[in-house]
Computed example of a mutant assay.
Amino acid sequence: MTSRCAGRRSSIIPDPMREEMPVLPLILSSDSHVFEPPDLWQKRIDAAFRDRAPRIQRIDDADQIVVEADQVLSGIGLISNAGARFEAPETISADGRFEDVLRGGYDPRQHLEDMALDGVAGEVLYPSQGLFYFRLADSQLMSAIFRAYNDWLAEFCRTDPARLKGIAMINLDDVRDGVGELERAARLGLSGAMITEYPLEHRRYDQSEYEPFWAAAAALGLPISLHTATRRQGKIRGAGEKTLRDASSRSTKAFYPALSMCDMIFSGVFERHPRLTLAIVEFELAWVPHVLSSMDYTYRERHGEAIYRFKDGMVPSDFFHRNVVLSFQEDAVGVRLRDLIGVDNMMWGSDYPHSESTFPESQRILAEILAGVPAEEQAKIAGGNTARVYGFDVGKAGRS
Rank of each mutant, 00 (worst) to 15 (best):
G234E: 06
Q71S: 07
N81D: 15
I79F: 04
A144F: 02
L278S: 02
Y299R: 00
P360K: 11
E113T: 13
A186Q: 15
Q57W: 06
F156R: 12
R97E: 10
R50Y: 05
E211G: 05
L102S: 12
L285K: 09
R103K: 13
L278G: 05
I307C: 08
A371M: 02
D31C: 12
L326K: 09
N323E: 09
D246R: 07
N171S: 06
M17A: 15
Y256K: 14
A239T: 14
G391R: 03
R364C: 01
G105E: 03
R364A: 03
I167D: 02
H227I: 09
G240A: 15
H111Y: 04
A168P: 09
I13G: 07
S317A: 14
A379W: 00
P38I: 10
V389H: 03
R309W: 01
R97Q: 06
A94P: 10
R85N: 12
F86K: 00
G334Q: 03
R203C: 09
W348P: 01
E90I: 04
N171P: 08
T358Q: 04
I369G: 04
W152I: 06
S249N: 03
G189T: 12
A62M: 14
L136F: 07
D46T: 13
A306N: 05
P374S: 13
Y256H: 14
Q140R: 04
G192W: 02
Y149Q: 01
D107Q: 03
F132K: 04
V120S: 00
F266L: 13
A69P: 00
F134G: 08
E211F: 08
K396R: 15
S355V: 05
S191I: 01
S139T: 14
V315H: 02
Q110K: 02
S260P: 02
S80E: 00
P22M: 06
V67Y: 10
A217G: 06
P212G: 02
V67H: 04
E211A: 15
G119L: 10
M169S: 04
S80D: 01
C262F: 08
T298P: 08
L125V: 01
L190S: 09
R232T: 08
E197K: 11
A168D: 03
L164N: 02
Y205P: 04
D339P: 01
L340H: 10
R147Q: 07
I13Y: 05
E90W: 05
W214G: 08
L26P: 12
Y198E: 10
N171H: 02
G75I: 14
Y256D: 14
T230W: 10
K235F: 11
D173P: 05
K43G: 07
F359H: 07
M169T: 01
Y297G: 01
F98I: 01
A6V: 03
Y308W: 11
A382L: 10
F49R: 10
P25W: 13
F328M: 07
W214Y: 15
R272F: 13
L141W: 11
G304M: 00
G96K: 13
